[in-house]
Design a protein around this nucleic acid. Sequence first.
DNA 1: GATGGACATGAAAATCATGTTCAGATAGTT
DNA 2: AACTATCTGAACATGATTTTCATGTCCATC
Lengths: 166, 166
Amino acid sequence: MSGAAAGRTDTVEPGARRTRQRTAVLQALVGFRDFISAQALCALLTEAGVSVGLSTVYRTLRDLERAGRLDVVRDETGERLYRERPEDGHRHYLICRCCGRSRAVDTEVVEAWADRIGEHTGFTDVEHTLELTGVCAGCAPSAQQGETSCRQESPRRPSDPRRSPR
Amino acid sequence: MSGAAAGRTDTVEPGARRTRQRTAVLQALVGFRDFISAQALCALLTEAGVSVGLSTVYRTLRDLERAGRLDVVRDETGERLYRERPEDGHRHYLICRCCGRSRAVDTEVVEAWADRIGEHTGFTDVEHTLELTGVCAGCAPSAQQGETSCRQESPRRPSDPRRSPR
DNA sequence: GATGGACATGAAAATCATGTTCAGATAGTT
DNA sequence: AACTATCTGAACATGATTTTCATGTCCATC
C-alpha cells in the first residue's frame, strides 16, 4: 500500500506533502461511502486510533474540495457534509433523511436543463447546486410512525453530538 | 392599508398576533424584491427608522418559513438568505453572484424529474433543493476583469458586514 | 377602565461549525 | 545527518443563529 497503484488515496494535491494525517483523512473518506461531516470524520479517525486534529481535518477537506475530489452538500442545519467523488464529473445524490445513506442519481436531465438556462436569461457562467432528500425503503416503516425517529441509531453517523437544533 | 385587501402583509401566521415588528419585517420583505439575510434585513429596518431586534427578525423569518411564505437559499458562506414567495408553489431562482439580484426561473422540467426519482429509487417523500447562480448581463463586463469585484457597490445589499470568509 | 394571563420583544449570553495563529514537529531534499 | 519549507494541532477567534429571561403588550373579561 505504498508507492504504486494508488492514485486515489495518494496525496491531497500534486506537490503537497504526504503526511500521516492527510493519508488517514483521505483513506477514511474513501472507505466511508456516504456523506460525513468534518467533525464526525475527525471522531471516526479518533475512534480508529488515528487521531487527527480538527484543524487538520478541515484543512485537508478544504484542499480536497479545491482539488475537485469531493462532493459537498449541506444538511438542514447548514452543516457541510463531504464525500469522496467516485469518478470524474459532477454528480448528485439522493440522501435519506433518516439514516443518512446516499445514492448517486442520474441527473443528465437536470444538467441539460441547467446548461440551457443561461441562454434564456442572459446569465453567464451558470452553476447549480441540487440536493435531494427522501426516506429510503429501509427507513420508510419506522418513519411512518415516529417521523424522523429512525435517525437515533444511524450506523453511518458515528457519535453525532447534535442535539438542540430544531 | 388597514383591514381588508391585505393577505400578503397581514399576519405571519393565522392565529399569530399582529405586532409592529412582525408587520415591519413582513412589509420590508415584500418590498425588497431579492434575497436578503436576516442581519441585512434587520439593518434595513433600523435604517428605515423601524428598529426591530435581531432575535425578533430571526423568529419572524423562522415562522414565515414554516408557514411556507418564504423561499430560502444559502450563499457561499452558508448564510441564509430569505425572500418572500411571490405566489403559491415551489419556485427556484437564478441569483447573480456579483450583484445578488435574483430572477425566478421556470423549473417544471426539474420538478417533474424530481417527482419521478422516487419511483426509480424506492425513496419516498422526496424533496429537493436547487440553487442556481451565475453572472447577470449587467455584471458580465465588470466580472470579466476583476472576477467577483462587482459586488463592492451592490445596490440591493445594504450594509453587508461580511469580510473575512474566503 | 382595571386586571390577568398568554404571547411577544430584545439585550445578552450560549451554541456551534468553521477559520486563524503560531510554536513546535515533520517530510523530503541536499 | 543537517536543513528548511511545510504541516500539525491546541488554543483562540469569528460569526451566524438560537436560547434565555426579564420586561412589555394585546385582549378578553370583569
